[in-house]
Each structure stands twice: as structure tokens, then as C-alpha cells.
């Protein structure tokens, strides 16, 4: 078992674009759930809308990069509004069911054979990342970040992804310290009280839903770019639940919590995978196959989600006194 390699892999996860995508999407959930109390169980849907919006506009319409990103964002805004109209007047549990249903509807629609021309159905779409890498300012070569060597493409996507994460964190922080954020926190606790103070609760919830959705959409693009492919199976409901795990790990009503949560999530997954696979390789564990070792990690995710919610709902960074759902 090569501990050095396992640690390097774990470090790789720390700065991987997938971690950045999870951080962004979880930050969107923090805006939804942590700050506004909107129980959005359809963040995977927002990510899918972003990823497909980008891929379809690039492939089917030949849109240049900025237009494709814009299309992705506008689609997620429209999705948020369409979703918000029926649900934002409802109780939290209804909202949860409707958002999860909406995300599944998106997934069914991009999977259907009737739209294969546009969405590629179950196979998904590929080869849309060219315009993104064409903008790469880094010359060809191998770049080292700490112990990790990577190509100029991998460096470029990481730089872009984490820049977006930093900007998004800054924006959310600015928003949440403002009176606007205060209204949201008020809504999280008691929307009728806020309504009685003359605030248009519905509009605030809609704005929060849209902002979190835009973050989800960005996350979808970042998630899909390094893979060079977008497939419906990646946007199933589990994705949303993994995001909730990240959010709860870090602290749901904090700005940096989702980012740190996503990092912990992926580093722990990588470490457990490395250790389990390593142990299987050297014969220390004989009763697990590699496939089962992979599944075991997801069992742990589920157990971790339960334990977190029960024993430390404020996460690593959160303040229990500020936690609306303690």
C-alpha cells in the first residue's frame, strides 16, 4: 500500500474541479436551505439544467462560450422561476417533494429517446469543451501544485473553477450581511412574521431560489467540463443528497461551510477508497471486492449524513445558536 500516493490523491481531491463544483452547488443549497429555509431537494436538477444548457447550446447551436454560459444561467433562472411559482407558497415538506420531482422530470426528459438528437438520451453529450480549453492562457506543459503534477488543461479548469468558487463565496457573503440577507434569515425562521412586517416574502424566496439555482448551474458546468461529457445518470437524486452531506459537514448557514464541507467530503472519500483498495491489494482485507469497497463508502456517506444531522447539525463551522433547525 502506497501511503504517499494515497495522500497525494487525497490532496488532488482537495483542489479538483469536482470538489469546486460540489462546493458551488452546496453553496447554492446554503442560500436555499441554510439561509432561507427552502428545502430544495432538486439541486441536481439545477446542475443538470446548467450542464445541458451549456452543452446543448454549444453543440446544437454552435454558440460561443460566453453565450453558452449565459444560456445555461438563463435556463436555470427560468427553471427556478417555474419551480418557484407553485412551490414557494407551500410548506417545507411539499417544497422538498416538488423540487425532487422537478429534478427527476429534468432527468427523465434529457434521458428520453424522443430527444436523442438534442440531448443524446442516456448516452449524454460529449465534445463541447473545446471552446473552454481554447481560452487556456497556460502554455502546454506539466505544472506542479504541491506534490501534484498536472497538464495545462487540468490547471486551467482548476484555476477557473476555484476562481468562480471564491467569487461566489464573496457574493454570498456580501448578500447575507446585508438587510436583504436579514430578511431571508427572518423568513427562514417565520415567514408569517416577516410578512406581517410588510416584506414580500414570496419575492425574497424566489430571489433566493434563483441565486442558489444559478450557483447550481455554474456547478453543473464546472462539473461537466473536465469530464468532457454530460450524462443524465450523473444528475440523479443521490447527487443532491451528497450535496446536503457536504453542506451539513461544513455548516449550513455559513459561507465557507459548503466549500470546506465539499473538501472534507471528497478527501474522506478519496482516503477511504485509497486505504480500502490498498488493503485489498496487499491482502489485508479479503472479504471485500473493489466494487464493494466503493459501495461501502456510500453506505458511510448515508450514515454520516444521519449522524451529522442528529449530533452536529451546525457542521464544522456553524454556530448552533444561529441554527434555525436545531
Amino acid at each position: 500500500m502506497d501511503f504517499g500516493n494515497i495522500l497525494i490523491n487525497a490532496f488532488g481531491e482537495l483542489i479538483s474541479p469536482t470538489t469546486a463544483a460540489y462546493a458551488l452547488a452546496a453553496l447554492g443549497l446554503a442560500v436555499h436551505f441554510g439561509y432561507s429555509g427552502l428545502l430544495n431537494f432538486g439541486q441536481a436538477g439545477f446542475m443538470a439544467v446548467g450542464a445541458y444548457g451549456y452543452a446543448i447550446s454549444t453543440l446544437t447551436f454552435g454558440a460561443p462560450l460566453p453565450v453558452a454560459v449565459l444560456v445555461a444561467l438563463v435556463s436555470s433562472v427560468v427553471f427556478a422561476i417555474v419551480l418557484g411559482i407553485p412551490t414557494l407558497r407551500l410548506r417545507a415538506d411539499y417544497l422538498a417533494i416538488v423540487t425532487i420531482a422537478a429534478a427527476e422530470i429534468v432527468r427523465y426528459i434529457v434521458t428520453t429517446n424522443g430527444l436523442t438528437e438534442v440531448t443524446g438520451s442516456a448516452n449524454g453529450l460529449a465534445a463541447f469543451e473545446g471552446s473552454f480549453y481554447a481560452l487556456n492562457p497556460f502554455p502546454q506543459g506539466v505544472y506542479n501544485i504541491g506534490p501534484l503534477g498536472m497538464s495545462e488543461r487540468n490547471l486551467w479548469i482548476r484555476v477557473v473553477a476555484w476562481t468562480i468558487v471564491v467569487l461566489a463565496c464573496l457574493t454570498v457573503w456580501l448578500l447575507m450581511r446585508s438587510p436583504w440577507g436579514r430578511v431571508l434569515k427572518g423568513i427562514r425562521e417565520d415567514e408569517n412574521a416577516v410578512r406581517a412586517l410588510g416584506k414580500n416574502v414570496y419575492a425574497y424566496k424566489m430571489q433566493a431560489l434563483v441565486i442558489g439555482g444559478i450557483l447550481g448551474s455554474f456547478a453543473g458546468i464546472i462539473f461537466t467540463l473536465p469530464r468532457g461529457a454530460v450524462q443524465p445518470a450523473n444528475y440523479a437524486t443521490e447527487l443532491t443528497f451528497f450535496l446536503y452531506t457536504c453542506l451539513l459537514l461544513g455548516g449550513m448557514a455559513t459561507v465557507l461551510g459548503p466549500v470546506i464541507g465539499a473538501m472534507i467530503f471528497w478527501v474522506v472519500l478519496s482516503l477511504t477508497q485509497g486505504l480500502l483498495y490498498g488493503a485489498i491489494e496487499i491482502g489485508a482485507i479479503t472479504f471485500l471486492s473493489n466494487v464493494q469497497a466503493g459501495q461501502l463508502r456510500y453506505i458511510l456517506v448515508g450514515v454520516a449524513l444521519m449522524l451529522l444531522m442528529v449530533f452536529r447539525p451546525q457542521g464544522v463551522l456553524g454556530n448552533k445558536k444561529e441554527l434555525a433547525f436545531a
Binding site: T171, L174, L175, S178, P179, W180, G181, R182, V183, K185, G186, R188, E189, D190, N192, A193, V194, A196, L197, G198, K199, Q207, I211, K321, E322, L323, A324
Partner: peptide, 30 residues
């Protein structure tokens, strides 16, 4: 209905009307 997880002062500020900072576009700029 008080917001238990907000401070007393934040509760009070929440009540005030005509706050430009409560509009999303202006909230970013203190």
C-alpha cells in the same frame, strides 16, 4: 413570532421600512 436565531437588534431592524439594502440589486453595496 420573534426570530430566536437573530439578535434583538436584528429583529428590530427587520421591521424597518424603506430599506434600500433589502433590494437584491443594492444589497451588494454597503
Amino acid at each position: 413570532k420573534v426570530m430566536g436565531k437573530l439578535t434583538v437588534m436584528e429583529n428590530m431592524r427587520l421591521g424597518a421600512t424603506n430599506q434600500p439594502g433589502e433590494s437584491l440589486a443594492k444589497a451588494l453595496f454597503k
